[in-house]
């Protein structure tokens, strides 16, 4: 499923470090996170609340809330560094080359402007088209995201729309300037279960149509399984595992991913209890030495408590940050 990328990835994140200076020292919210997103690919980003999923998205699009800042690593869009661009250049990338969909459609739209006003403003910010042409495009977009009677509804205010419809409007806005990459930050979490699937479908379809890549941030493994090509698992600001979605779900390797998958109910298994991972994710100022997961890990050994594992390649497409898969150790075990 995962496209093999020969011409280089669309987005490449290398050893990304995000820090928050506080009065009691600097907190590392993201610690050496690396991954690629290929052209047209959907990368799922999973992890618990506070693992750094949204922060990764914010760092890529250049909207980290101060005092948060990128303290290391680089972010490349088509091989070009974008993490250190001047503010004005980065602004031109936002919306035009990287779009973003936020979690809560009820608060994502400015209540005082009609949908048409917001769409036209966005289109005309990035494209040199007339008001009339922008409006035509806006109506077509609304129609495409599935707003019935788009030509008429476009002049309504956001509060005239339901939550699901508003999220469609948000998607239309995020895609208005035809970005190459869309970061969707929990796009369905705030929505009614009955419309979640529709929204994901709309997003996926339009992006596929336009060849746009998607970084889908969520903690809903079901959505990931159905939508993503590859999945990245974050834990305490570090990448635990990354690989094709089927492999990771069916044969998770990192003990944390194994626990995560075990905690999802399935229809085929009749388990008495869902497995759970004991303990909870550490606060950013209390991450253990060595592997961040070691206090909760059932398979941890001495090395895990001392030395932090880097991503270890497992075959062509998979990488796991766990000493269990250290080639040296495996050789020993065998």
């Amino acid at each position: 499923m995962a496209p093999v990328h020969k011409s280089g990835p669309l987005l490449s994140v290398r050893d990304l470090v995000v820090e928050f200076p506080t009065r009691r020292g600097t907190l590392r919210a993201l610690d050496k996170v690396s991954f690629d997103i290929a052209e047209g690919e959907v990368l799922g980003m999973v992890g618990e609340s506070g693992a750094g999923k949204s922060l990764t998205g914010a760092a890529i699009i250049g909207l980290l809330e101060p005092p948060g800042r990128i303290a290391g690593g680089e972010i490349l869009l088509r091989g070009e560094r974008i993490d250190n661009l001047p503010r004005e250049k980065m602004r031109r990338i936002r919306g035009r080359r990287i779009g973003m969909v936020f979690q809560d459609p009820l608060t994502s739209l400015n209540p005082l402007y009609t949908v048409a006003e917001q769409l036209i403003e966005t289109i005309r910010t990035h494209m040199d088209v007339s008001e009339k042409e922008a409006r035509k495009r806006a109506v077509a977009l609304l129609d495409r995201v599935g707003i019935p009677a788009a030509a008429r509804r476009i002049d309504d205010y956001p509060h005239h729309f339901s939550g699901g419809m508003r999220q469609r409007v948000v998607i239309a806005l995020a895609l208005a300037a035809e970005p190459e990459l869309v970061i969707a930050d929990e796009p369905t979490t705030a929505l009614d279960v009955s419309v979640q699937a529709q929204i994901i479908d709309v997003l996926k379809e339009i992006c596929a149509e336009r060849g746009a890549s998607v970084m889908l941030i969520t903690h809903d493994m079901g959505v990931i399984a159905e939508t993503a090509d590859r999945v990245a698992v974050l834990y305490a600001g570090r990448l635990a595992e990354i690989g094709p979605v089927r492999d990771v779900i069916q044969a998770a390797e990192h003990p944390y991913t194994v626990g995560l998958m075990g905690s999802i109910p399935t229809l085929t298994q009749t388990a008495e209890r869902l497995t759970q991972i004991p303990g909870s994710m550490p606060r950013l100022d209390a991450i253990q030495q060595g592997c961040a997961f070691n206090p909760r890990c059932t398979r941890a050994f001495d090395r895990c408590r001392v030395e932090r594992p880097d991503l270890i390649a497992r075959g062509e497409e998979r990488q796991v940050a766990c000493w269990l898969y250290d080639p040296a150790k495996e050789a020993q075990d065998v």
Binding site: R91, R92, R94, G95, G99, M100, T107, L109, N110, T122
Partner: peptide
């Protein structure tokens, strides 16, 4: 959120601050 979203759409500072 709508200001964050406006920024994420690449609107100019002027439009974000004074328009929105």
């Amino acid at each position: 959120d709508y200001i964050k979203f406006a920024r994420a759409r690449g609107l100019s500072n002027r439009a974000v601050h004074f328009g929105h």
